[in-house]
């Protein structure tokens, strides 16, 4: 599903943020990345999401080498990924419905299909009936569920989540993780960055531990 081959990364003007990182996430797994702040967790996810390019090594997504792929191909690869962020990244001038419908619109779905899939996604995260609301009128947990609905709307095989519960209280965090596990059981692969040891040990199939840019 996703494979890092001896990946190294340095940002312009930074030292080596990642060094010789190799791992593979198999289909249907729920994998966590942990490590101290600054260990490189977000960097791994940004590389997997093709937001950044590796300085060394290569990355394989669904069997395809993507480390040096042309910029024109990236949008189409990204449509097969679901991205979830710590700060939700919702658009505040659009309704919940329009937020969740956005990736479907981008992928070129027709209006009926968008309507159907958007409602289904909102239903799955327990937000049926919230379509006309605006993100600011929602609680943090509800906002993150909109973010999750947006990520699953196109039914991607792989979801990348960077500290998805970083801004939520422990109970809500568990609720979100349980939701992830439910999706995982119907076949979606997850790669989640988190430094919440409790959550990691409770939900992880596998843990990738980073320490100052190296796998341990």
């Amino acid at each position: 599903m996703l494979r890092f081959e001896r990946v190294g990364k340095r940002y312009p003007g930074s030292g080596e943020v990642l060094r010789e990182v190799s791992f593979a996430v198999e289909r249907g797994q729920m994998v966590f990345i942990t490590g101290h702040s600054g260990a490189g967790k977000s960097t791994v996810l940004r590389l997997a999401a093709l937001i950044e390019r590796p300085s060394r090594g290569d990355i394989l997504l669904a069997g395809k080498r993507v480390g040096r792929i042309s910029a024109h191909a990236i949008p189409f690869l990204r449509r097969r990924l679901g991205l979830i962020f710590q700060d939700y990244r919702l658009l505040h001038d659009r309704s919940v419905f329009d937020n969740v419908a956005l990736p479907l619109l981008i992928a070129g779905y027709g209006p009926e299909e968008i309507e159907r899939r958007t409602r289904a996604a909102l239903h799955k995260v327990g937000l049926a009936g919230f379509e006309r609301r605006y993100p600011i009128t929602l609680s943090g947990g509800e906002q993150q569920r909109v973010g999750i609905a947006r990520a699953i709307a196109t039914r991607p095989p792989l979801i990348l989540a960077d500290e998805p519960t970083g801004n939520l209280d422990p109970d809500l965090s568990v609720e979100i993780m349980e939701m992830f596990r439910d999706f995982n059981r119907i076949g979606i692969t997850f790669l989640i960055a988190s430094h919440d040891q409790g959550l990691v040990s409770r939900f992880a199939d596998r843990v990738i531990r980073l320490e100052r840019g190296r796998l341990v």
């Binding site: 024109h72 991205l83 658009l91 981008i106």
Partner: peptide, 16 residues
């Protein structure tokens, strides 16, 4: 800005 950034993350092409 923010909207463009999010759209690109969701797989929008430059044309879109």
């Amino acid at each position: 800005r923010r909207e463009i950034e999010v759209m690109l993350l969701l797989g929008a092409t430059d044309r879109f």
